[in-house]
């Protein structure tokens, strides 16, 4: 997504990118980025934890104002689980199952899950 951030910035709109993949973001180098060391798909916090989501977003917006040189990547001090870093061994590793590939399955899954979230 850093590629898109760079093009938006180049077109005159300042950007801030949220990242949970430090190595990819460092390589692609969007103009401004903050790193949150959470599993992929949790760049703005844990599910159903609005307080945490709000704090992370407020930090990100603050970083937007204070990052002052092109390509800066700031690590935010959030820890997924202070007692267990085991997720780091598993996320996107061997045997890590992807799902949601394929429209029919996707649609059915989203309907079911989002419906339950609403209840």
């Amino acid at each position: 997504m850093g590629l898109i951030a760079r093009e938006i910035e180049r077109a005159g709109i300042p950007t801030l990118s949220m990242s949970s993949a430090w190595d990819i973001t460092f390589a692609v180098r969007p103009p401004r980025a903050v790193f949150v060391n959470f599993p992929l798909n949790h760049q703005t916090g844990k599910a159903n934890d609005p307080g945490l989501q709000r704090r992370i977003l407020l930090d990100a917006l603050r970083a937007f104002e204070v990052l002052w040189a092109p390509g800066m990547l700031l690590t935010l001090p959030y820890v997924w689980d202070p007692d267990d870093a085991g997720w780091e061994e598993k996320d996107w590793g061997p045997g890590f199952e992807l799902y949601g590939v394929g429209e029919a399955m996707q649609e059915g899954f989203a309907e079911r899950k989002l419906g339950r979230a609403q209840a």
Partner: peptide
């Protein structure tokens, strides 16, 4: 709704605000 070829997590279905 979500369509993504590479990666999804059930948490996003529970609460899209996490991403």
């Amino acid at each position: 709704r979500i369509h993504h070829h590479g990666y999804r997590d059930a948490d996003v279905d529970l609460d899209p605000n996490c991403v």
